[in-house]
Write a protein that binds this DNA or RNA. Structure first.
Lengths: 260, 260
DNA sequence: TTGCTCCTCACGTCACGTGAGGTGGC
DNA sequence: TTGCTCCTCACGTCACGTGAGGTGGC
């Protein structure tokens, strides 16, 4: 037996507010089974309770409405599970980042800020490298960079090139200023080959960052401040060189060379 | 030495997008140190980098801008820490809820839905009780209910009244339909006293929920469906009775008594 | 008849992002 | 002069919430 329920009854049974139900109808996520042609009253079938509860649970986990729509539309249960698992995985990563972020923030609030003056002016020579370029959002960068560098190393092995120095990446201004930009991940190689590109030489101010990536902003702040104080800033992408998992060189473009 | 930075330089040093910086200026969260009167160009002092980075970290944790403003405005470090700790505590609870929610969802997707027909029609007699009423949002209810019932028990002991049955709460329709409503938490007592109120008698359909609170929606769905199928629904608040930590009676108001 | 439930429509919220159109500095 | 950075202003986005003004059913 399938009864028709008023929006109020349906609301109590699904924990969805009346406003939310009307919204889901409007955007086509969950349409009532029947609509009274005279009064416009929405009538929901009791068989819709399960679907509505699933919607609420996904929304509680901040799954976007479009994704929820996909889950519900998937006739193939494999498709459905794929979307759900993907979202739960994103959630898990999000939780992890949040926890790291909280820990880092608490440490920051307790510590004295370090005075960083150990910068070095250096000329980065032209570097042949295997590269990968991609427009990446600021928040999505970590998740992109790691597998991409791994992939480049695999390619290197296949082509028979030899690694010549630490991995790195170039970040253009708009990556920071607009929150999205074309990032270049690279692995330097000993000899140029068909698949390689030459990164141009640049003058940079370098500051080494030791510790978790979450605190990298501190090094950017310190380095950028020193460059600005000396008035030696130059246009061009910022480069990061990943010396070890716990140590990163931040290279800020400047006008003068090492001869200063 | 305190240099003035363009919005683009400042963006790179703080990981805040230019759009975000302009927004923070507009809402008065972070004003540039100087504004070029001719061009309108914003100039940020290098000493503002720390503040801006703190803002970004709080915003990364979804702290509302108004709360961030409070943190920054707090001259008293004790005040400041209180706001931060409060927010981190909210974050922690949020994470916990999310994890429970994910686990519950995964279980739900694997299990067969149970067919619940073990409902009982019952007349709840008029009940003298010590009560606490409060307008509570749906999402904030759990956090309110538990300490409130504990407080009522403390009061009881002081006044010398005797508990007479399990704790409970009344939830009016708008609590579900608008996502906020005046919830009544109560502890039944043996004899009415100056501090007690009598809950009126009602006829209800009862379904027992066993298991985590996260799955309570399933019981609401099943019970509401049965009540609707039989066409015996009546106006009035829904009552929950907390038999044990793992077992809750959901009582849905109906028109008929136990004599059906 | 009264109160209750439900309806639509327009606008608000939050924290920005998008994009048009334009200007200053080198 | 050209390209680059920066500016304002108006509107869009997302998932609803708010509130006005009104109607049907018992």
């Amino acid at each position: 037996v399938d009864v028709l329920l008023s929006i109020g009854e349906f609301s109590k049974m699904t924990y969805l507010s009346v406003k939310a139900l009307r919204h889901y109808h409007e955007v086509g996520l969950l349409a009532p089974t029947a609509i009274d042609p005279m009064t416009g009253y929405r009538r929901y079938a009791s068989s819709q309770v399960q679907t509505a509860q699933a919607i609420r649970r996904f929304r509680d986990l901040d799954m976007p409405i479009d994704d929820v729509r996909q889950v519900l539309a998937a006739t193939d249960p494999a498709d459905r599970n794929r979307v759900i698992v993907q979202h739960l995985e994103r959630m898990r990563q999000q939780l992890e980042r949040t926890q790291l972020s909280v820990a880092s923030l608490q440490a920051l609030l307790e510590e004295e800020p370090r005075d960083r003056t150990d910068i070095e002016l250096r000329r980065l020579p032209a570097t042949p490298a295997l590269v990968a370029r991609q427009v990446v959002a600021f928040d999505a960068c970590g998740a992109w960079l790691e597998p991409t560098l791994a992939r480049l190393h695999t390619q290197l092995a296949i082509v028979g090139l030899t690694v010549d120095g630490p991995d790195g990446a170039l970040y253009p201004d708009e990556f920071f200023e607009a929150g999205e930009g074309e990032v270049t991940a690279y692995v330097p190689v000993r000899a140029a080959g068909r698949a390689t590109i030459e990164l141009p030489a640049t003058n940079v101010a370098v500051l080494v960052h030791d510790g978790p990536f979450n605190d990298l902003d501190q090094t950017y702040g310190a380095l950028g401040t020193i460059v600005a104080e000396r008035g030696i800033g130059a246009p061009g992408p910022i480069r990061e060189r990943y010396l070890t998992p716990a140590s990163t060189e931040v290279c800020w473009p400047i006008t003068v060379g090492t001869n200063q």
